[in-house]
Design a protein around this nucleic acid. Structure first.
Lengths: 216, 216
DNA sequence: TGATAATTTGACCGGTTGGTAAACATTACA
DNA sequence: TGTAATGTTTACCAACCGGTCAAATTATCA
C-alpha cells in the first residue's frame, strides 16, 4: 500500500522530511519562474532529482505542492512587517522596514516572484490568506502609522498606500530584476544596485525630492 | 490556397483588420491573466469568438501572436515617459508623470500585467526591447533628472532608481490589484483608491514623510 | 453572373501534460 | 532474522496542447 501523506497521523520519517524539503525547494525554483500553469511536474521532479511518480508520492497533486509552498513562504515573507514596532522612532522604524524588505528582495527573489506570479494571475489559491491574515496584519500596522501621523511624528498620509509603496518599490528589485538589469546596463549590474536602491529609497521616503530650504 | 500574412504584400482587407484586432484584444485578455505558457490558443480563440484554426489563419503561431501584442502595447506603454519634458518645472513634471502612470494603471491594467508577466518570467521574448529602445529612453530621461538635481531644482538622487520607484508604485495598482483590494477591504474597493493613491504618491515623492520644520 | 481569391470549419496528428497501477526495493522494528 | 510498512520505479493512460489539412463557405470583382 502507499498512502504517504494521508496515512501520516503522527510521526514523519526522516526520509519524508528530507524529500519534502527537496521537493518544495525545487517547486519554488520552477513555480517562481513560470507561474502555476506554466510550471510542469516533470520539470519540478527533474530539479528535485527524482522521478515524477516519486514526487507525486509525497504531494499527490501539483496543486497540493503549490498550496504547501505558498503557505510556508507567506509566513516568513511577512516577518519584516510583523517586526514593525510601534515603540521605535517612526522614521527609524520606516527606514529599517525598507531596508529589511530590500534585503529580502535581494536574498529571496524567488519567494517574491512566487507571490507576484500568484497575485498577478488573480490569486486564485490565496485569496483567503490575503483577505484574512494579511489584511489583519496590515490593518494593525496601519493603525500604528496613523497614530504616528496624528501625533505629528511623521507627515499626515494614508498608511495603507504608504505600506503599498514600500512593498512595491522594494519587491520591484526582485520581481522586475531582468528589467532593472537591462536598464542599468552591464556596467552597473553588480550587487551594488541594492545599496544604491536602499540609499535612494530612504531619501525618498524620508525627505522626498523637493529641495528643502536650509536656514542658512 | 491560404497564406494570409505571408501573402499580404500591400493591402489589408477590412476583414483582416477587424479579425486581427479582435484576436489581439482576446490575446491581451488571456496572456495578461495567465502569462505566455499558461495561456492556451483555444482559450484565446474562444474569447475572440472564433475557431482555433481560424485564429491560426491570422497568426500562424502562439508566439507570433504574443510578439505582435507585445510590440504594439510596448509603444503606447512608454508614452508617458516620452512626454516627460526637460523644459517644464521639475516638480510639476514629476507630479504629472506619476499621475499619468497611475491613470494608465487604472485604465489599462491588462497591458500592465502583460508586461509584468513577461518580465517576471525572465522576459524571454522582449530582452532586446528592454536593452535597446527602453534603456535608451530611460538613459535620456535620467540625464534630464540628473541635470535638474545638479542645478539644485530637486534633491540630489539617483535618477534611475527614481524612475524605478515611480514605475513600481504606480504599476502596483494594476499588477497587484487583487491584493490591494483584499487589503483595503470591500468598503474601500471603489475607484476612489486611485485618487487616494495619487494624493499619497504626490506627497511622498515631493515631500517625503518627515515632518518639515515650519518656521512658525 | 461566374470564377477566382480569401476566409472558415471539422477532423485530425504527434507530443506533452498531470496523474495512476502495480511490481519492485528498501527501511524500520519486533 | 523476518515481515510489514514505507519508498521507488517502469510502464502506462486519458486529456489537453499547438498546429495541420483538405474541404466547404463566403467575399471580391471582372
Amino acid at each position: 500500500m502507499a498512502l504517504p501523506r494521508a496515512a501520516r497521523t503522527l510521526r514523519r520519517t526522516r526520509i519524508q522530511e528530507e524529500k519534502e524539503e527537496r521537493i518544495l525547494e525545487a517547486a519554488l525554483e520552477v513555480f517562481s519562474l513560470h507561474g502555476f500553469r506554466g510550471a510542469t511536474v516533470d520539470q519540478i521532479a527533474e530539479v528535485a532529482g527524482m522521478s515524477k511518480p516519486n514526487l507525486l508520492y509525497y504531494f499527490r497533486t501539483k496543486e497540493a505542492m503549490h498550496r504547501a509552498l505558498i503557505t510556508r513562504v507567506l509566513d516568513t515573507w511577512l516577518d519584516p512587517l510583523r517586526e514593525f514596532d510601534a515603540k521605535g522612532s517612526p522614521v527609524a522604524e520606516i527606514r529599517s522596514y525598507i531596508r529589511r524588505k530590500l534585503e529580502m528582495a535581494r536574498d529571496f527573489p524567488r519567494e517574491s516572484r512566487l507571490f507576484a506570479n500568484e497575485v498577478l494571475q488573480g490569486a486564485p489559491n490565496i485569496e483567503d490568506e490575503l483577505k484574512g491574515p494579511l489584511k489583519a496584519l496590515v490593518d494593525e500596522k496601519a493603525e500604528v502609522i496613523r497614530a504616528w501621523a496624528k501625533a505629528g511624528k511623521i507627515a499626515k498620509c494614508d498608511p495603507y498606500h504608504l505600506i503599498f509603496s514600500i512593498w512595491s518599490t522594494t519587491q520591484h528589485y526582485a520581481d522586475f530584476d531582468v528589467q532593472v538589469r537591462a536598464v542599468l546596463g552591464q556596467e552597473n549590474a553588480g550587487e551594488g544596485r541594492f545599496e544604491d536602491a536602499a540609499r535612494f529609497l530612504e531619501q525618498l521616503f524620508i525627505n522626498g525630492l523637493e529641495v528643502r530650504d536650509q536656514p542658512a
